[in-house]
């Protein structure tokens, strides 16, 4: 237990360093998630809108989950060398699957009756997408983004084996910071991930249309819900 007390002391004594590393950690996270969104959202939403490519859209998250983060980052070192770029590319690869799968499941699962009603009113496909499907799909899409953010915050820690990137720098450098430093930084990373989780959960709630709030959001077909419960975690 002493180690934990020392770890908390370390946080107090090194707040400047921890703050600096937290910012670097968030910069890396933001860059990786931002790029992942640019790639994954259009593809996922478009496939969901077309009701096509369910196999790809669903299995990409299974494969993505299977990719060992440590191997991905290490491999990036062998190809791209150490540093920000390598870490960021590895993190983008890891952030794309949950965003893409959720966007797909969210749009694909929008109630067909609502879509047909909109079409009956004479909306073009683009209008259906923008005015009906996206608003209804938003909470679930957002859940995917939340998962990606939390996942990337966690994985950015491991990226420290491949050059300075954030709070993981302390965790992999027990030699310099000793166990209290490692414990202190671990506590900080855990708190950071939990805060992100909480913040995004609140945001998600705020953007969920009132009518959808009471019942738990669940995509159309039960099979896909079962295959991707990660969307509701």
């Amino acid at each position: 237990m002493n180690d934990f007390v020392d770890g908390i002391k370390f946080i107090g004594d090194n707040s400047g360093l921890l703050w600096h590393l937290t910012i670097k950690h968030l910069e890396l996270t933001g860059a990786a998630v931002g790029i992942a969104l640019l790639i994954a959202l259009p593809i996922g939403i478009w496939l969901g809108h077309l009701h096509r490519g369910s196999f790809v859209a669903i299995s990409i998250s299974n494969v993505g989950r299977a990719l060992p983060t440590l191997a991905l980052i290490s491999f990036g070192v062998a190809i791209l060398g150490i540093g920000f770029l390598n870490s960021m590319i590895a993190l983008v690869i890891l952030a794309v699957p949950p965003v893409l799968t959720n966007a797909y499941v969210a749009v694909e699962g929008v109630d067909r009756d609502a879509v047909e009603a909109a079409e009956g009113m004479g909306m073009t496909p683009l209008e259906v997408l923008l005015r009906v499907e996206l608003p209804l799909a938003l909470p679930l899409i957002f859940a995917g983004i939340r998962i990606a953010v939390v996942f990337v915050i966690a994985t950015a820690t491991i990226a420290s084996v491949a050059g300075g990137t954030g709070l993981g720098d302390i965790i992999v450098d027990q030699a310099t910071y000793r166990l209290p430093g490692v414990i202190g930084a671990s506590i900080c990373v855990a708190v950071l991930a939990l805060l992100a989780q909480l913040l995004f959960a609140l945001l998600q709630r705020a953007i969920t249309p009132r009518g959808l709030r009471v019942q738990k959001v669940r995509p159309g077909r039960p099979e896909s819900a079962a295959a991707v419960p990660v969307i509701t975690n």
Partner: peptide, 17 residues
């Protein structure tokens, strides 16, 4: 949910003591 959210590298280290 909290356990699930704690990054793995941190959780492994937090168990070392």
């Amino acid at each position: 949910g909290i356990l699930y959210t704690i990054p793995s590298l941190a959780l492994f280290q937090l168990l070392v003591p």
